[in-house]
């Protein structure tokens, strides 16, 4: 899937949770929303996109993807 599309989706979700919560909590909410509603291949891709250093993540969006990456690593390991 288009990296830009996925990053935009993460940022859109973050824009909802960010104003209502401190950054760390907002990131947990965003990661939770993505885990509940995204197909696994999209979650894998967004982690790869983050690992490749995509520049357009919002701060909360980036923190959320870090959480997803850690969860994926735990699952794999």
């Amino acid at each position: 899937m288009h990296a830009d599309t996925l990053v935009r989706m993460v940022n859109d979700i973050s824009e909802f949770f960010a104003p209502a919560n401190p950054e760390a909590e907002a990131a947990v909410e965003v990661a939770g929303h993505i885990t509940r509603s995204w197909d696994p291949r999209m979650r894998r891709q967004i982690v790869e996109i983050w690992q490749a250093g995509h520049a357009d993540f919002s701060p909360v969006g980036r923190a959320a993807v870090e959480i997803l990456a850690a969860a994926a690593a735990r699952k794999a390991g």
């Binding site: 899937m1 288009h2 599309t5 509940r36 509603s37 995204w38 197909d39 696994p40 291949r41 999209m42």
Partner: peptide, 15 residues
């Protein structure tokens, strides 16, 4: 695990 939504299906079809 959740599956693909319609717009995701389109994106996934293209990739």
């Amino acid at each position: 695990e959740a599956g693909l939504r319609i717009p995701n299906m389109f994106e996934a079809a293209l990739d």
